[in-house]
Design a protein around this nucleic acid. Structure first.
Lengths: 188, 188
DNA sequence: GTCTATAGTTAGATAGAC
DNA sequence: GTCTATCTAACTATAGAC
């Protein structure tokens, strides 16, 4: 792999593990097995490299979610598949994590890919729910946009609870609770 | 206010704003208007002071939540009151925030108050929901523990979405979506 | 209890040789 | 493109005077 590629991937990993504030250029260079000069040759500095890494992570995350959204099944089945997808729960969400970084939220350029990702996820989930209503699978009283936001929030909050407890159990409870609430609105 | 008190409160604020990794002893001293020697006289170092601040924040948070849980109204009303409580949404949760800090989750001593807080919140919400079922207000098919975890997760995830969007709107949608899903399970 | 001095380490980056 | 040397500031803490 090329040096710029290794630098971007190493930065993605470190941003996930330690966030922007907790990630130093030195740590990035060591993980990428690249020298200082090399890093500063390919990127203007830490913010520039971080932007490339955040954009990459955001794109990957959106593509991953799309697999569940465009799959087979009813609306509730597809939402459940999304919530139950295999995840490394205790590592948390590489995108959601960045919302706790003061330097990321303070910089519109760094925050944009993060905002885009959640906007995209919520929009796709809204479409899935709306389609379910149109097909007569789901109670039409349900507000699709609000419910979509609830689903995305449960996922992000589930990570928080799991990391606090150092256990996946609260994550499982939170997501299963949400699936049950949603399933109760299915029409049959 | 005494110097130790000012140091603890300043640390609470900085941990909320910047997290453990992003908070330096120097920044704490400046905000508390205390000198270096003063800080190291009252506390062993950054971890010691952080522990005092995290414990304080955890206690405060649990007491705040109790106001809604022990209030009047049906189970759903009390859960809704908790989710709709006036909050400075864009600042996020001072406790949930810490779950994204590598040094906090890696240190059992620092993580404990965080774990305790979510465990306590979930337990209290479970009790509220169970009571609602016993009083015939709520569908007994509902799993109280799972649903309680869902509610806490929606709150934490709502903060994440709001900070990503730099807007309270996704938080409002997520919480209202959850309240609507829960309200559909009310018996009347 | 509080202050200043000191000190080793890391952060983040630039300069210039190769 | 990559490497080493160099630099200023900040981080985290200790020592000892007052």
């Amino acid at each position: 792999m090329s040096t710029p590629e290794r630098l971007i991937e190493s930065t993605q990993e470190l941003l996930w593990e330690r966030g922007y504030v907790g990630t130093s250029p030195k740590a990035i260079q060591q993980r990428a097995a690249a020298g200082q000069g090399s890093m500063y040759h390919h990127f203007k500095g830490k913010p520039d490299l971080a932007l490339a890494a955040i954009r990459r992570s955001a794109d990957e995350r959106q593509a991953l979610a799309e697999e569940q959204f465009s799959g087979a099944g009813t609306a509730v089945e597809r939402v459940a598949a999304y919530l139950r997808r295999e995840r490394d729960v205790l590592r948390g969400c590489p995108i959601g994590r960045l919302t706790q970084d003061p330097e990321v939220v303070a910089d519109p350029t760094l925050r944009q890919p993060v905002a885009d990702t959640f906007e995209h996820l919520t929009r796709r989930l809204t479409a899935v729910l709306t389609e379910g209503q149109a097909l007569g699978q789901l109670d039409s009283e349900l507000d699709p946009a609000d419910t979509a936001a609830t689903v995305v929030a449960v996922l992000q909050g589930g990570y928080v609870l799991a990391r606090a407890a150092d256990s996946v159990e609260p994550f499982r409870r939170a997501t299963e609770g949400a699936i049950a609430l949603l399933a109760a609105r299915e029409l049959r």
